[in-house]
Design a protein around this nucleic acid. Sequence first.
DNA 1: GCGGGCGCTTCCACTCAGCGGAAAGGTGGC
DNA 2: GCCACCTTTCCGCTGAGTGGAAGCGCCCGC
Lengths: 264, 264
Amino acid sequence: MAGGSREPGRSVTSRVLAVLGAFDADHSALTLTDIARRSGVALTTVHRLARELEAARMLGRDDRGRYHIGHRLWELGQLAPRRLLEVAHPWIQDLYAETGENVHLAVRDGMEVLYVHKVYGRRAVPIVSRTGGRLPMHPTGVGKVLLAYESEWFVTSYLARTLERPTPHTVTEPGRLARELASVRAQGYAFTYEEMTPGSCSVAAPIHRDRGGGEGGGGDGVPIAALGVVVSSRRARELPRLVEPLLATAREIARAYAASPPAS
Amino acid sequence: MAGGSREPGRSVTSRVLAVLGAFDADHSALTLTDIARRSGVALTTVHRLARELEAARMLGRDDRGRYHIGHRLWELGQLAPRRLLEVAHPWIQDLYAETGENVHLAVRDGMEVLYVHKVYGRRAVPIVSRTGGRLPMHPTGVGKVLLAYESEWFVTSYLARTLERPTPHTVTEPGRLARELASVRAQGYAFTYEEMTPGSCSVAAPIHRDRGGGEGGGGDGVPIAALGVVVSSRRARELPRLVEPLLATAREIARAYAASPPAS
DNA sequence: GCGGGCGCTTCCACTCAGCGGAAAGGTGGC
DNA sequence: GCCACCTTTCCGCTGAGTGGAAGCGCCCGC
């Protein structure tokens, strides 16, 4: 930067982004010093930038003086194009109405699932995932589905890593996981039983790109998203009953998405 | 900035923010030149900043090369503290289930209403407002409610301006509007009939800060938010029937909000 | 087919905005 | 009352950022 930067070549913008990037789901309220530590930007610089961001309401501060993401940033974020979400929402809402359970829509982002939307109410069990949140792929229903239809090299490199094991039920052996993915592909949906969170299990189905041509549209190709229902594991036996409505909803969304106007 | 800036004293950060600020609900896809025009930042500078923001996925580009808000920004925005929203959602969902109509939650921001949340499904009429969107206060149900409980000087200065008139039914005469606000305060809710959008009307109620003490909590003080239901004007006659459930929901939310843990 | 307008991208010389170490000021806990 | 940790202010040094100019590519209208 201008001035005695320790790390020449780093732009001001990248520092601003690093400051914002210091926040994530597990660190949504940070002190100045935290931000400096997590972003790798000098404390003084963070101080100046954070004040400017705060003035623009891109950051806010709580009563203890800690910084958090500001409302302006939320507002701007709402302008991101979310065609799939807007198309899918009414059907997801219907599925929630029909089942009374948490329904989410997720996409793959890197090697994680990104929860794009979530519909729930008082009837549904409280659930960990939050909109905008990320989870690993192998212990979640939506993740398994998205992984099952990925290219071989992707799956191989996914399985090659050390897989997290959030609960004792999480499947992490590459062989067994690969077999599960094959059966997901074969049946067109995935189950999980307390693989991510003790007390919750799920069903999920892919939303395929609908190529119009009659009934032959699904099955192959990388899905654009996955739709999942999470229920308390006390009601795990009800999961199979959810499969049909879930698949029907996924098909509806695929159709509606294909019919909706292409990127404006 | 460093260099031959035309406007010394303007920080890099402010330019970055100006670039992002060029996007709004009516301008969600912009060319580089558009951004430069709308932000007042030199084209070359916008070019450099936009590329850097694009690399960080804070901006994205559509197939025509136009820029739009990126997914990363959406994701960050989801981290903004939204305690009210999270507390209120289950009840709002219930109200939607009960009525089948668009329900929204809005707060005042400056002299506008900011739509913070919206619950709807296939049963509800398509509606203009979007989450993160803003509308003037006087032609909307939630706006009227929020305005009705504002301090006198605020209302005075609100009415002193030239008020937009989106439809022929919009009330803009200060006198009549002031009388309407008084009756909103008296009855505790507001109606609108095609004052913002032809074909839609609404009911809205305030969510007051619940001070615990039994039934005496409501009525006075500036509400923390407003809850509104929008219906097709063909069903305007059903509006009165919605008042009771709406008020009940607003009370529930107030109570739940007061009971929820104070800013973590 | 060709000229002109528009928007994107690259280049480059000039310069002041930004950097961060140091030190002072707050706040809370033990 | 002292210490530890966080926030805020100060200030001298300097290279990152700026924006005009020019080149490129595309599409539209004639």
